[in-house]
Computed example of a mutant assay.
Amino acid sequence: MSFVDEVYQLYRDQLKDDEDDAVAIVLNILEDQTRENVMQLIEQMNEDEVVQMMGVYLVEMIKMKMAQDGKLPQLRNHNSTQRFH
């Protein structure tokens, strides 16, 4: 079972119809992790998961940069933009 599956199973009853729930859970989990912990999780991923993770990261970071340049409407503030750049 992947880490994502484990997290989802653990928190599935707390996730409602709003993506803010997922963001809050992820930020809470990451807040307690060291770089070494995160790298261990990445090492356990298969190649497709690593590529997918990087794809999602790059898309979100580019969207954030585009919003900063006024090319997109301002993104909703999840406090994630301040933690991840």
Rank of each mutant, 00 (worst) to 15 (best):
Q40G: 05
F3K: 04
L15P: 03
V23M: 04
V56N: 05
R35V: 07
A22V: 11
D5I: 03
G55H: 01
D13N: 11
Y8S: 00
I42Y: 14
E47K: 15
Q14H: 01
T34Q: 04
Q14I: 00
Q68L: 12
N28T: 05
L75H: 03
L58R: 12
L58Q: 12
V56W: 01
G70M: 07
D5A: 10
D69A: 12
D20T: 10
A22M: 01
D18F: 08
G55D: 07
D21H: 13
M61W: 12
R35P: 03
N28I: 07
L10N: 10
D32H: 08
E43Q: 13
L72K: 06
Q14T: 03
A24R: 08
E6C: 02
A67V: 04
M61A: 15
L10P: 00
Q9M: 09
M61R: 15
V4E: 09
L30Y: 04
S2H: 05
M66P: 03
E36S: 14
D17L: 13
A24V: 01
M64V: 07
L10E: 13
D21C: 08
L27D: 00
G55W: 02
H85A: 14
Q74I: 05
D17R: 13
I29A: 03
V50S: 02
I42E: 01
F84S: 10
L72E: 05
E60H: 12
H78Q: 00
K16M: 14
